[in-house]
């Protein structure tokens, strides 16, 4: 079972939920930028949600399927087509041998996720299949996908098989798809909730207010490592010497130029800039789907609300996984 990359597009990499446990060695976490979409895509084909999929950025990626496969596409709407015909997202798709899947261009969001029943036959490195470009490990030979790469899939599980049988038995096209609006909105201006960062109090009152009252624009320097933002300058009350220390997904650092950077999936393990805020976990997928020129309105929240939002999301994902099972068995 295999598929061939006909065109890599802007950037396509293999990602799972991340490489944890080795940050103390300087090994970054990586993983899908939008983990909710990857988890849902995996569920839709009967995979474990930790399975690796392909993260496709903005446009251009073209894949030829060399066998029949059960796949699902989630995340940003990159106007995918199969042999030129628009294809529905957020549902299982039975794709036939010889078909070509093309992600034409993004009309909503920034990153699409492709899951394949059985998962990709990629060896785990330090507990993950995620691509770590700098160290050249994980994913497909530690790099972005290139023209003529052939990806193999692993043997399908009993669950995958049930999903496939169900799809093959359908006499009419599938009528349902996941209601993604329960998890996402793809708007050009997004409210992103934050908690105060470790050095929040070190910023002057004006800066603290600007962060919460003025929009910040995602610049062209926005990639898997981090989003450089542009907006009102954020300044410390006084300069001070900060030692490098652990950071995480969504940490908002402010370098000396006063323009904030949000650390994303491929962030370094440690950082030495003052941290004004931290994006709450529940809002990271929404952030991961933002494009350059989109605007962010930061809203200060509490740890209680941050945890409630995350719990609500996990409950919805759980209900969704049951719903998918019922529809596919």
């Amino acid at each position: 079972m295999s598929m061939k990359i006909l065109h890599p597009g802007l950037m396509a990499t293999i990602q799972d939920l991340g490489r944890y446990g080795s940050q103390k060695y300087g090994v970054i976490v990586s993983g899908a930028m939008d983990i909710v979409s990857l988890r849902i895509a995996n569920r839709l084909v009967g995979n474990d949600e930790k399975e690796a999929g392909i993260e496709i950025t903005l446009y251009g990626t073209k894949i030829e399927f060399q066998e029949d496969h059960l796949i699902a596409i989630t995340g940003g709407d990159l106007q995918a087509t199969i042999d030129g015909n628009p294809v529905a997202m957020w549902r299982p798709i039975f794709i036939q041998k010889g078909s070509i899947l093309h992600f034409t261009s993004a009309i909503k969001g920034c990153r699409a996720y492709l899951a394949i029943a059985g998962g990709l036959a990629i060896p785990e490195k330090m507990g993950s299949r995620s691509t770590y470009l700098r160290a050249k490990i994980g994913g497909y030979e530690g790099r972005t996908l290139q023209k003529d790469d052939v990806l193999q899939t692993r043997d399908i599980s009993k669950t995958n098989e049930m999903f496939i049988k169900k799809m093959q038995s359908l006499t009419e096209p599938l009528s349902w798809s996941v209601n993604y609006s329960a998890f996402f909105s793809f708007k050009k201006t997004q409210t992103i909730r934050i908690l105060p960062g470790s050095e929040y109090e070190r910023f002057d009152t004006n800066s603290q207010q600007h962060l919460l009252q003025k929009p910040y624009t995602v610049t062209m320097n926005a990639d898997r490592m981090g989003y450089q933002l542009k907006g009102n300058k954020l300044q410390l009350t006084e300069e001070f010497n900060l030692l490098s220390e652990g950071v995480t997904f969504g940490t908002i650092q402010v370098p000396t130029n006063g323009q904030p950077i949000i650390l994303m999936a491929d962030r370094q393990t440690t950082g030495g800039y003052p941290k004004i805020a931290q994006v709450i976990s529940a809002d990271l997928p929404k952030l991961a789907q933002m494009q350059p020129t989109n605007q962010i309105l930061f809203e200060l929240t509490s740890i209680e609300k941050a945890e409630q939002a995350l719990l609500k999301r996990e409950r919805k994902l759980y209900e969704l996984s049951i719903g998918i099972r019922l529809k596919t068995l």
């Binding site: 080795s22 030692l243 220390e245 652990g246 995480t248």
Partner: peptide, 12 residues
Amino acid sequence: EAVPSYTNVTIY
């Protein structure tokens, strides 16, 4: 995991 720095430990 726990990540050490000069003066602190970050526990994930």
